[in-house]
Design a protein around this nucleic acid. Structure first.
Lengths: 338, 338
DNA sequence: GTGAAAGCGCTAACAC
DNA sequence: GTGTTAGCGCTTTCAC
């Protein structure tokens, strides 16, 4: 049933070598031979078996991107960037979801070990520095969106610290001095870096850091609600909240509204990521935009560069962010904290 | 640099056949030989090259799921269902995004033609009946979430018509008689089937169908806004809106709020899908839940069954929905359309 | 410009 | 229980 290069060769009256040549444009072939081959291919409905090709060439031209969760629309533009860059350079991007499980992540990485793919990009990882460095020694691999402290491998992220710094500075500029932060206790350097930015912005403006002004949960929606409850239970609640993600910001806003707060007046809320939700929400959520498309493009371009040059760069690339102002942040002058 | 089965055989002092046997548990091997092999594998850091294996076995145990867009969190649970079913049956799921482009979709399907994967699942497709039927004759392929009229291949969806029917019946039960529908003019049978359900519910309750009570745009967020403008510009605007997706419902709600409408009072809105957003939104959006996880499981189980039995079923499986009541739908008694 | 043939890494049939 | 070997479909060197 399966038609192979041999069948095509026979039908075209040439050798398999010639068929291979027209298939790959790898060497000059006479016009008539080429025509015969192409006709035979069409007639037989032949498509080459890449397992044979890939085995022979020791490459698949596929890059695997491992996503922690497909629940996050956030990855969407990153993936588009990856795909476009890859396609231009003759590669395909395949995706898989690790569900933030170390085991699943390793299982997916088997694709790399088994030579099913040429390289892997981890958008968030459960692996530790040592494992990562070990992988990087043997394979082409990169981190995207989430850096790992101490790991020496190609990493592309937004400038997390800078974004948080500017977001908090924006809140301060709007007159806020009591600024809380909704962060995570998850092992995540982006959380860490954003906390750093938050602290620096406070410091630079002479606002003392208060431990009770920082709430740490997970990325899960519910923790926006919990954070809000925590802050509003404080004797001196914040007038503005900087959240580590738009999902958490939306959750805070939802809870605040249901408690009768006027967003942008009684309480200001700033998110991070600029996912569609932050724009769709009522009110629109002020946030820090990540250059997702560029992040995706960049990591693929760098990775393929590494493959082509047999290099193993450990560049840590930080791309610029942008503050997007919407309605969820208002002037402190208007603020009348309940 | 690359260590192969030969190297392991040499290091273990056995033949490659024996190594293969312990690798695959394919035949009895003496305990001592097995131990030697395992030690050699560990010592050399060997992992099998699946290109060789797959070429030899003419199978890869990979199923490719082609998603129109990674922007839709809706697919998340479906994918989890697919992964779990696949994993139990010895397969892996790989994903790719077609961005709703026919060309990209075909490019991804090359993975199937090229034997990189054993089967493909299309979650929405740009291909026509003839192409699909042709593919189905040559390959293992299935449709998921979106059926194609007339196409004879394995298809798993929610009961779109039934879900819409019950959703609209729910609105009627809440006292509404003037019910608009936000649909799409996109070539999508789920839209079509949900329109059918809408019409049947009206009919069954003696409510005449009005062409101006149906708005057709795309799935894009902006069309909720446009739909709302359309309906409210009518001399006799609807008191309730049934939307084909939660995204569109959220968009309608956002626009309505910004125009000063009280949701669930001045206007009721029902969505479809039950994505996280419909729960996160303020107010919570009443919607039709799809059994996403089961949809994913089912399509993979059926597909692998087909592979294992060399069958090419054309089952059209419709899974049951569930109405989720939240705050965006209220009694007509309360309604005071502006 | 073309063909013969080796060989990529693996599995499995066969012989022992 | 184990080893030898053919061959999966392809690319590529080499000789012509």
């Amino acid at each position: 049933m399966n038609v192979t290069i041999k069948d095509v060769a026979k039908a075209a009256g040439v050798s398999v070598a010639t068929v291979s040549r027209v298939l790959n444009n790898s060497a000059a072939v006479s016009a008539s031979a080429a025509e015969n081959v192409n006709n035979a291919i069409k007639k037989l409905g032949y498509s080459p078996n890449f397992l044979g090709r890939n085995l022979r060439k020791c490459e698949t031209n596929i890059i695997l991107a491992i996503i922690p969760s497909t629940e996050q629309t956030f990855y969407s533009e990153i993936i588009r960037g990856m795909q476009n860059a890859a396609s231009e350079l003759g590669y395909d991007i395949l995706l898989s979801a690790s569900n933030s499980s170390r085991d699943v992540e390793m299982r997916m990485l088997n694709m790399l070990f088994n030579r099913i793919v040429d390289a892997a990009i981890l958008l968030g990882t459960q692996l530790d520095v040592k494992t990562l460095d070990g992988l990087n020694r043997q394979h082409y691999i990169a981190l995207c969106c989430e850096r790992v402290e101490g790991a020496e491998l190609l990493t592309v992220t937004v400038d997390d610290e800078g974004g948080a710094f500017d977001a908090v500075k924006h809140l301060i500029k709007m007159g806020h001095r009591k600024i809380g932060m909704v962060s995570t206790s998850v092992n995540s350097m982006s959380s860490h870096d954003r906390e750093q930015g938050y602290r620096k912005a406070l410091e630079e403006n002479g606002i003392p850091f208060r431990e009770d002004y920082i709430y740490r949960g997970t990325y899960d929606f519910i923790h926006g609600v919990k954070a809000f409850e925590h802050f509003m239970g404080l004797p001196e609640p914040p007038t503005a909240l900087f959240c580590i993600s738009d999902i958490l910001a939306a959750s805070v806003v939802k809870k605040a509204i249901s408690e009768g707060y006027a967003i942008g007046k009684d309480i200001s809320v700033c998110g991070f990521d600029n996912i569609l939700l932050s724009h769709m929400y009522t009110p629109g959520i002020t946030t820090v935009e990540q250059p997702c498309y560029d992040i995706g493009r960049t990591v693929v371009e760098e990775l393929i560069h590494n493959i082509n040059h047999g290099e193993r760069s450990n560049k840590a690339i930080r791309l610029p962010y942008k503050i997007i102002e919407r309605e969820s942040v208002g002037h402190y002058a208007d603020t009348n904290n309940k």
